[in-house]
């Protein structure tokens, strides 16, 4: 950890200007991941701009769109009455993440920005293309039990660790991003990236940009939903595989469905082919199994994580089964 400068502002514009000026500056919100990374020497910003006092903590439903300020804490969002009633899948995803103490401090924007938990990324003496491009990938041929089976590259097989983001992908959220040039809006699913040849880039946020809020369109996915996280212990453990599942059922027929997976890729992994397959079909175990099988197209194990090729479809089936049984 190096000495760094600490600045704080309560004005978005000031924050953006400060960041734009200085290539070695970074925002800090909850800091639950950034501070660890600084302590381990994985990242060494020279300037921290504390954005906790920016007015970005509102949660409101307006014109059938839920707007969530980027500095809303994970626990405040999970406990919000509108979220509980209209977007319970998001509530479950949030509650599956980290621990109660971390969720109290961690923000929505910070959750999106958290970095992989790959052990090689955290140890500066070991190879990691994400931390140090060109140094190699320690996980390939090493401990990769937690690692990706979809969209991997020769450079990186790390996974994005968030649960919240898996729920948001399933809910077709959008991200509103601000910079000194103004605001832009992108689909949540396009926020995170695959590793490709540039694993050092986790997402498409450009230098100088700030996540200001999320928007989720209202839907009818608040009756038959489930977020199932399979992990090594019951709390405070990252997903081996997680599945966000939501169904809209009419007389046993699936009129709308959302499926996304966590713990399997460098980004939250939406299961579009499975969704398309299920639409218009009966909500039966046989159909769930077929959808789960479809989801696995292109999956590839790296030895220790081969079990995910079996665990992932099983988790999809179980999540859909529980979702169907609700109501």
């Amino acid at each position: 950890m190096i000495n760094f400068q600490y600045l704080r502002t309560s004005v978005v514009k000031t924050a953006l200007n400060l960041l734009a000026k200085d290539p070695k500056a970074t925002f800090i919100a909850g800091g639950t991941n950034l501070v660890d990374l600084m302590k381990r020497g994985v990242t060494a910003p020279e300037k921290l701009i504390d954005i906790n006092h920016l007015p970005l903590k509102q949660i409101e439903l307006k014109n059938n769109v839920l707007r969530i300020g980027a500095l809303t804490s994970n626990s405040a969002l999970a406990e919000n009455a509108i979220v509980k009633e209209k977007f319970p899948l998001l509530m479950l995803a949030l509650q599956s993440g980290a621990s109660a103490q971390l969720r109290n401090v961690a923000t929505v924007g910070g959750n999106m920005m958290q970095r992989t938990r790959c052990g090689y990324f955290y140890d500066t003496t070991m190879p990691c293309n994400k931390r140090q491009p060109g140094s190699g990938c320690g996980a390939i041929g090493g401990y990769n039990r937690m690692h990706a089976i979809f969209g991997t590259s020769e450079a990186c097989i790390a996974v994005h660790p968030s649960d919240m983001c898996v729920g948001l992908v399933a809910l077709e959220a959008q991200v509103v991003i601000a910079s000194t040039k103004g605001e832009r809006k992108i689909n949540f699913i396009d926020f995170h990236r695959l590793a490709g040849t540039t694993p050092e880039k986790d997402n498409n946020l450009q230098k100088g940009e700030l996540i200001v809020r999320l928007e989720i369109p209202l839907n009818n996915l608040n009756k038959n939903f489930h977020y199932l996280k399979v992990r090594d212990r019951s709390s405070y453990a990252f997903a081996l595989v997680s599945v966000a599942a939501a169904l809209e059922l009419k007389d046993g027929v699936i009129s709308n469905v959302r499926l996304a997976m966590g713990g399997v890729a460098h980004k939250p992994w939406r299961l579009t082919a499975s969704e398309n397959f299920l639409k218009g079909k009966q909500a039966t175990i046989a159909n769930f199994e077929a959808a789960a099988k479809l989801a696995m197209n292109g999956a590839k194990g790296f030895g220790e994580n081969d079990f995910k090729l079996k665990l992932a479809p099983n988790t999809i089936i179980e999540a859909l089964t529980v979702a169907k049984a609700k109501a």
Partner: peptide, 29 residues
């Protein structure tokens, strides 16, 4: 069910040397 210190034999270093990744049981277990 949960505890295992993982050492990468290629480097001789532990890869889960923290409380997030070395799993001692939590209350929910």
């Amino acid at each position: 069910l949960t505890e295992e210190a993982l050492l990468d034999n290629r480097y001789g270093r532990y890869v889960n040397n923290n409380f997030a990744d070395y799993h001692v049981p939590v209350h929910a277990d």
